[in-house]
């Protein structure tokens, strides 16, 4: 299904993208499965998977949250600069 992926901070560096339209497999039905798929598509993202959060349509969600076609999914690692 088609979704929009937004990448922030280190995720932007790891994937080389700020925003992409992505075709994700129909087997990816929730955020947990999305994280696994992201690690496969973008290996440089793997070290960040444990700490980053996903926001679906401008709301932070957990691994069990479902994903639908047309969702805007933001990949948000924490940053600490001050």
């Amino acid at each position: 299904m088609q979704v929009t992926l937004l990448f922030f901070a280190a995720a932007r560096d790891a994937t080389g993208h700020a925003k992409i339209a992505a075709e994700i497999p129909d087997t990816v039905t929730n955020v947990g499965e999305l994280l696994v798929w992201l690690g496969q598509e973008f290996p440089a993202l793997v070290p960040h998977l444990v700490s980053l959060r996903i926001a679906r349509n401008e709301e932070f969600v957990n691994a069990t949250a479902s994903i639908s076609a047309g969702d805007v999914l933001a990949v948000i690692p924490p940053v600490a600069g001050g």
Binding site: V50, P78, A80
Partner: peptide, 20 residues
Amino acid sequence: CLFPQPPLPGTVGSCAERGV
């Protein structure tokens, strides 16, 4: 609640390393 899990050490650089 927002970021339950801190990053693995060495995965997120500082302003000195990444620039700002």
